[in-house]
Simulated scan of single mutants.
Amino acid sequence: MAKWAKLFRILTVVFSISIFTYWFIKKSAVGFVDNSVGLQVVNKLPQTLDFYLIEVDSGKSGNLEPKHIGKIRPEYYRIEYLKMDKSDEYWVVGYLGKKNMVYFSQHAVPNKNIDQIVEVRNYINQSVKLSDAARKQVDSYNYENAKLGIWVSLDFLLLFLNLVLLLRKNNKD
């Protein structure tokens, strides 16, 4: 029975390592998308802002899909690629700190063959109603990412413990 338990532990560890390897490669790969619109967000403000991008589904569902662009320093930019097959609108949201939304803009994509450039030159909120919806989406997105981070950390802990138990030498005298 002990040999079956050890075999099961070995198979579980190998399967877990392969799943996590695939997941990390998928998450860290550059997001080039065929038939996509390139979006360049340029920060012209004197402070570093944390930017999020929300794609608005123009279908009946009206889904909002948030994506974290990252923190952009002054006079720097970030490029994202948007799959705009279900959408022709996106929102750019900028935060100063964790909860202080200082920038919100709504952008239409009339021609999906031309890349977009958004230069953030001032603190603006184009629509209070839409920015409240964007704030809820960003908060939900951050909450889901925090939950995912906790689960991944716990899974890594279990994987490490199983790996250590497999590799340690049995010191029975």
Rank of each mutant, 00 (worst) to 15 (best):
F20C: 07
V120M: 04
N142T: 08
L157K: 09
D57V: 08
I114A: 10
K44D: 11
S105G: 14
E119G: 03
L166C: 13
L157F: 09
Y103T: 02
Q116A: 10
N63Y: 14
Q47M: 08
A134K: 12
R121C: 03
S58L: 08
N122R: 12
L39D: 00
D155R: 12
N35V: 03
A2D: 14
G62R: 10
D139E: 15
I114H: 09
S61G: 02
H68E: 05
Y52G: 11
L64I: 05
M101P: 02
L166Q: 12
V120K: 01
I25Y: 14
L39V: 10
I114C: 01
G149D: 10
R135H: 11
E119N: 13
Q116C: 10
E89D: 02
I54S: 06
D50Y: 02
G149F: 08
S131L: 04
I150P: 04
K172A: 15
F15H: 05
N145H: 11
Q126R: 13
D34W: 04
A133W: 15
Y76I: 01
Y52H: 13
V93I: 14
T21A: 14
L163T: 15
E55L: 15
N170D: 15
Q40K: 15
L64V: 02
Q40F: 01
V152D: 05
P74Y: 01
R121L: 09
V93M: 05
P46R: 06
A2L: 12
L159W: 10
W91V: 03
V120F: 01
K71I: 00
I69V: 15
G97I: 03
I124N: 09
L163A: 14
